[in-house]
Design a protein around this nucleic acid. Structure first.
Lengths: 115, 115
DNA sequence: ACAGTATATAAGCATATGCCTATATACGCA
DNA sequence: TGCGTATATAGGCATATGCTTATATACTGT
């Protein structure tokens, strides 16, 4: 019988603390299905650009997201090779999908399409 | 096809924030398999009694644990009928079991056995 | 009623958090 | 090179958090 994959309690609490912010949690759920860049999040969350950058930095510092520059934009996406990704994924799986934000963004012509 | 049970993002982030503290997260994991009272947690976490009480209060205020007085002790346990219990349970399921703390407590004769 | 034990609450304090504004840096294009 | 856009960093500030000590409350047993 296999022991289920477990995650150290200290590490788990650090991750949960990061996800325990509505902005960051929504970001992760969004990023799970869509790469996004900072300026898109600014629109979605109606929040200042630095505030968005700071949230993303926290997520990146702990390895939950990765970034890729494409021209003048930096696209963020979920880092699926994070050691604790299965844990994260199981949490995100319980959340309602946030496609509406993306659809709305597109309908406003604000979705960044990297040409 | 059934839609998987989802939990509102605001509620989810509130729960995750609460679990994002190592003490509270450990408490929840412990309580999942053992009823405990405040004084046991004081021993386990080597933390002041008010600190423990305050953590438990937060967990109780949001309905994650329930309490039952037995004589001079108040025993806490996980509230399995919490609306979001499946979510909580799936998180706790990823954590290594904490039976060692209980065993240690017993070996020191500090486990409260409610007579 | 009183002493001892268990728990809760209050108040205070140091630090962390989440936001803001101002500014710096990086890239693309004319 | 210089301008516009995207992002990052710095500094400041209000509020939240997690702990402490002191004190109140609740129950038990004599």
């Amino acid at each position: 019988m296999k022991t289920p994959v477990t995650i150290d309690l200290q590490r788990a609490s650090r991750l949960l603390k990061l996800l325990g912010d509505p902005t960051r949690l929504t970001m992760m759920k969004l990023l799970k299905s869509h790469e996004c860049c900072v300026c898109e999040f600014v629109e979605i969350f109606k929040m200042s650009q630095p505030a968005i950058s700071q949230h993303l930095r926290k997520l990146r510092d702990i390895g939950l997201v990765k970034e890729e520059r494409k021209g003048q934009w930096i696209f963020f996406s979920v880092n699926e090779s994070h050691e604790d990704y299965p844990f994260i994924e199981s949490i995100l799986g319980h959340l309602p999908d946030q496609n509406e934000s993306i659809v709305e963004l597109e309908s406003q012509g604000l979705r960044v399409c990297c040409k």
